[in-house]
Design a protein around this nucleic acid. Structure first.
Lengths: 150, 150
DNA sequence: ACTTGGATTGACGTTTACGTAAACGGCAAC
DNA sequence: GTTGCCGTTTACGTAAACGTCAATCCAAGT
């Protein structure tokens, strides 16, 4: 969510310290565990727009943050189309009242969706923790240490 | 997760009341908001195995529960292959110590994955709640009631 | 007897999210 | 000067998760 939420960012002490850093495509790909192909694909889909120096792509700290956000969305099971929609939510102009209303409406819709996901997730976690507890108990009962690889 | 976790199920008062109920493919499809095609596909992939009466599929309460679990997994962003793996975790025989160890290991791995997802989800939710709060404040400042559709 | 309403099995089509060459340019080292 | 290494575009391939027919079957109603 580039620059939208203040969040708990480490204090920028070095003036324009590393927010001015630029990244190559391979560098970011390594960092996030994806391929350059994937990043170009995301660009084609309008999810990121790195600067260009000639043909070569130059990624800013902003781009990097955005990419991280995209991948987090993916881990949560959103499609690239949905992620694009959500990213666009932040780019929308907040000048008009109607637009603010619309933004509010869609944020709330999305929060509802996310909270459902959270319930699903908690249920899933609890079930697997149950299994863990049961299996641990069973092993102990058999006089086996549940920890240790042998 | 069928019958694995006790969970908070409503008391079965009618003896074999509805755990003996059988469902048609269309019935379950309607209930879960999917198509019959999807259910047959899941069967092909080995995710559910309904009884047969001739050619017609008959779904039990167990199948229904299982289907619900599958769809919950999907909402969390798991692939059908992953979901199958997780379902199989429960079917695995818990007799041998080695198998119990393996089950424990994989459960823990999965819990780790789920908890990462949870952190991602919480971060996402917080960001959108920030947006909601900011937009709400902005609307109030302009003397507009954030609620109400006009 | 005939239609209507579900059920079935193929088989091919489609969308999403990339992978995988192929063919090229720029630059630094050997 | 050519061998790597990184970057580029264009284009075809692919796995996952179904959708969409087509042809068929079967029980129920009129």
């Amino acid at each position: 969510m580039p620059d939208a939420a203040p969040s708990a960012a480490p204090a920028k002490s070095t003036a324009s310290g590393d927010s001015a850093r630029i990244y190559s495509i391979a560098e970011l790909a390594r960092e996030f565990g994806i391929t350059a192909r994937t990043m170009r694909f995301y660009e084609d889909e309008g999810l990121i727009k790195p600067r260009r120096q000639g043909l070569t792509r130059l990624y800013s700290a902003h781009d990097r943050t955005r990419l991280g956000w995209i991948l987090r969305g993916k881990r949560l099971g959103f499609s690239l189309a949905e992620i694009k929609e959500l990213l666009d939510l932040y780019q929308v102009d907040r000048t008009g009242v109607q637009q603010l209303r619309e933004l509010l409406r869609r944020s709330r819709l999305h929060i509802t969706d996310l909270e459902r996901k959270r319930r699903d997730l908690d249920a899933h976690i609890n079930e697997f923790k149950d299994v863990e507890a049961q299996v641990t108990a069973e092993l102990k009962q058999r006089g086996v240490d549940p920890e240790g690889d042998d």
